[in-house]
Nucleic acid binder design. Structure first.
Lengths: 330, 330
DNA sequence: TTGTAGGCGTTATCAT
DNA sequence: ATGATAACGCCTACAA
């Protein structure tokens, strides 16, 4: 289908080498020959086969990125940045999406490795020793975003625990007497990597403990709205705020509240995590924590490239600054 | 770094061929030899190099997908479906994002082609004869989603014009006397592919013409909110609705209205296009048109694979059904 | 200025 | 049951 160097050589009745020299401007080629070669190449629309080239010199100049279900919106915002950052350094970015299945994630990572990606970026949903071993066995630089897997794999993240603690401080400072923390089911943590949420929970608990009178509760289940309702029904517990480990939880609670004729923050306070970009369309403006996705993404790429270029790379845990965004729901 | 068949052969002191036979369960290998080979392969974590394999038999079993800026959310929802559909048929999906730049888009498409993708899916922002020639010169099956490039390249879409006409009918049936159509700047259409929006505009105009008393206006600019304000200020024009070629326009108008103390649909009607998934969080529920992204995506993949497998493929224009979602903003 | 020869890792064909 | 050889398309010594 596509024309190759060999075919051009045949057409021009010269050797492959000469064709290569003409095409790549290397070595010296007779002026007349060169013109002939170039015109044939152009006519047949010659393009080097990058598989062959990569196979030859052992470099693909490509990075693999694994994203979770895009509809979750977390991590999605980073894709553009990763792409641009990689391009600046001459790398091509291949994105694959895993739709929240542990097996798929592994399968996709393997697929990227088999295709000789030079490095892989991932916010993994797998966890544990076996997964760590799997990643290490790939013999490919890997950088994790957010969810940590182990000390031997670099993770770029925000200090989620500190962010959660500061959030509690903020909520308390606004006069709330009860804080309810909403996060994914904690049972899954045996299998699934919810490191980020665990860190936030730890921060929540540590900070809440500092305030004697404060009532703290945790809702860790998929079907959390009934619990929200039930807890709000108990009116004797004082002014209540929800701290949600993820903006989408907060948005669902907000919608529920609006549907039930409540107003925020009058009837209850609400705070999220991540500052996902659809918040701009939501009223009232959600108080949340910016986890600096852009910065994290850019850093992750640059760290990955560093790792690719290093002989003796030492894995790190890199923390970037988060930012509390005090808006309208507290 | 990674071990190869050759190295295994050397270690086991047999020929590559034998190693291959053991690894792929083909031909016959001595039981003892096979065990030895398999154990070495396992020990060194052997994985076939897909570049080499692809180079050999001329197939990569990979599709390329080019998306526009992911933050726009249009097209994003399709990614999962494309991925799954492709996987069902044994294909790997490589996604790249072009961030709304015409040059990037071309560059990325070329990159995918150079990497021997067997087919490319794209909702192009480029247009015109030159771009068409470029795509054809790739000699790779291409399927466009939404934005048409030419008759010689298959496009999967929804009949946007009909959808716009029906939308106008709906709006009129609700008693509106003026409809304002909001879409991207029409000036860019010389360079940029906004086929989808053009079709909707045509539908709007055609349908509006059917209603004698109806006042119709078009706002086609990036900074459309001032015009929205100005047009609403003219109170003598009767009951007004905005028909937006894209939900994000509608959401921006909605937010603007809410910030200015207006209520929808009492002060003005609002209708969007696309039914992007964040609408579920928005109150009031936006009346819009489902452009069946899921169906379009799945069809596009399947059509692409058909094209890949065909010797003599005939490009088509494929139309799927849209659906008017009459919700709360009219 | 031009050409020959070998290799990247895999596979398929044809021998032994 | 095992091996030798060539091919995919590109690149790089090393000749001539």
């Amino acid at each position: 289908m596509a024309i190759t160097v060999n075919q051009i050589a045949e057409i021009c009745k010269v050797s492959r080498t000469t064709v290569l020299r003409a095409l790549n401007d290397s070595g010296s080629v007779g002026k007349e020959t060169k013109e002939r070669i170039l015109s044939v190449a152009k006519e047949y629309n010659y393009r080097p086969n990058l598989l062959a080239r990569s196979l030859n010199h052992g470099r693909t100049m490509s990075l693999g990125v694994v994203t979770i279900n895009i509809e979750n919106m977390y991590f999605v915002q980073s894709l553009n940045i990763i792409n641009k950052e990689a391009d600046k350094r001459g790398y091509f970015t291949n994105i694959v999406v895993c739709d929240e299945s542990l097996d798929w994630e592994r399968k996709l990572i393997q697929g990227l490795a088999d295709r000789q990606m030079e490095g892989i970026l991932i916010s993994p949903i797998n966890k544990g020793k076996e997964f760590e071993d799997f990643l290490l066995s790939l013999n490919i630089p890997v950088v994790c975003i957010g969810n940590q897997v182990s000390d031997s794999i670099t993770t770029v993240q925000v200090n989620e625990m500190a962010a959660a603690m500061e959030s509690v401080d903020l909520i308390v400072s606004k006069g709330y007497e009860r804080i309810i923390f909403i996060c994914p089911p904690l049972a899954v943590k045996e299998k699934e990597n919810i490191y980020v949420h665990e860190q936030r929970l730890l921060g929540f608990q540590a900070s809440a403990a500092k305030y004697p009178g404060l009532i703290q509760e945790v809702i860790g289940k998929t079907d959390y709205l009934p619990d929200v309702e039930e807890m709000l029904a108990r009116k004797d517990q004082g002014k209540t705020a929800f701290l949600c480990s993820g903006d989408s939880y907060a948005l669902n609670v907000m919608r529920w509240g609006q549907q039930n004729g409540m107003s925020i923050p009058d009837d209850f306070g609400l705070m999220g995590f991540d500052d996902i970009n659809i918040l701009e369309f939501i009223t009232p403006k959600l108080t949340t924590v910016s986890t600096n996705l852009e910065g994290v993404a850019a850093t992750a790429v640059s760290e990955l490239l560093t790792q690719i270029d290093s002989e003796d790379y030492v894995p790190k845990a890199i923390y970037l600054n988060y930012k509390i965004l005090d808006r309208e729901t507290l």
